[in-house]
Amino acid sequence: MRNRVIIGVDGGGTKTRVMVKERPDGETLFDQNFGMSNYNNIGVEGLRAVFRVIYEALITCFGERLKDAILVLGSAGVDRPNDVEIYLSALKESGFTCQLEVVNDAEIALIGGNGGRKGALVIAGTGSIVVGIDSKGKIVRSGGWGGLISDEGSGFQIGRHAIAAVMQEYDKVIAPTSFTEKLLTHFQLASPEGFMDLLYLENTIPVNKVASCTPIILEAWAKGDEAACMIVEAELGKLVGLVVGISRQLGSEKFRLSVAGSLLTKSTDYFGMLKEKLSLVLPQVEISAPLHDPVFGAIMMGAEYK
């Protein structure tokens, strides 16, 4: 008799990666990307639609085996018990009858990045969060409370402050920046006043849109633009503060800190500066690239439930 299959799902704001194995060290039986599955971006109906496509793809590959599978979903939209229920209901309504476990995507990234339930993880992409596992095996967190009050060191915060700098230049409060025209071109705006329509005419804050300009600001930072340097280095300092918060919650200044998110995995300068700043306040922390992808962390979690 074959082993139960483990379905690992990494649900994000741009794509959803699904991997299937019988055990973490076994053969990969399925590995595909699907549409976004962050409830905050697409709502319940959108969630059901994506999960239905995933279900159809898996039932085609695994047939009756799917009924006895273990599915672990990690999604950025999972922060409270009510969020878990929303995702569980959407999975069930899409056809899944197997064992289901739903957690925040930071948890699967932490387990995958450190190769097990240990250490901590800092994520900095569109948003940000730092998570860790304490001596009792409990997940602890610092940050990640959304762009209005948190998400320190994230693409959204860098983009938000960059737009603010453009407006300050427009008002003659600060000297001209090297990125103003590039931001206007990026957002297809005729003048800085166009940011009012971009930011305030939607029902929700356009987080992804604002964060999308981050590469422009990082480039200006690398070239020494004064406004960009102030923005990026201030946000890096705040990100370090989140790691300090996790250190206090863990009761330790010595742990492995894995990284995730485009700002830390795609920008060597941003990662390098974070490492430099962190070494000044927590020199014993080992900051490293992740050992495995988040979806593999979901597989590892699924193996715990077998």
Results as ranks from 00 to 15, higher is better:
residue 5 V to I: 15
residue 7 I to V: 15
residue 20 V to R: 09
residue 22 E to V: 02
residue 23 R to Y: 13
residue 23 R to I: 09
residue 24 P to N: 07
residue 30 F to H: 10
residue 33 N to V: 05
residue 33 N to S: 12
residue 46 G to E: 12
residue 48 R to P: 02
residue 50 V to I: 15
residue 54 I to M: 13
residue 62 F to D: 08
residue 64 E to K: 15
residue 67 K to L: 14
residue 67 K to S: 14
residue 73 L to S: 07
residue 75 S to F: 06
residue 76 A to F: 00
residue 78 V to F: 07
residue 80 R to T: 06
residue 81 P to N: 11
residue 89 S to D: 15
residue 101 E to C: 06
residue 102 V to P: 00
residue 104 N to M: 13
residue 106 A to Q: 10
residue 116 G to F: 03
residue 118 K to V: 11
residue 142 S to A: 13
residue 145 W to S: 08
residue 148 L to M: 15
residue 155 G to V: 02
residue 157 Q to W: 11
residue 164 A to C: 00
residue 171 D to E: 14
residue 173 V to P: 08
residue 186 H to I: 07
residue 187 F to A: 02
residue 189 L to G: 09
residue 194 G to M: 06
residue 196 M to E: 10
residue 198 L to E: 09
residue 198 L to H: 05
residue 212 S to L: 04
residue 213 C to N: 05
residue 215 P to R: 01
residue 216 I to F: 02
residue 217 I to S: 03
residue 223 K to W: 03
residue 224 G to L: 08
residue 226 E to Y: 05
residue 233 E to M: 01
residue 234 A to I: 00
residue 242 L to R: 01
residue 243 V to K: 07
residue 244 V to G: 04
residue 244 V to W: 00
residue 247 S to C: 07
residue 250 L to E: 07
residue 278 L to Q: 11
residue 281 V to I: 13
residue 283 P to W: 03
residue 294 P to M: 03
residue 296 F to M: 14
residue 299 I to Q: 09
residue 304 E to K: 12
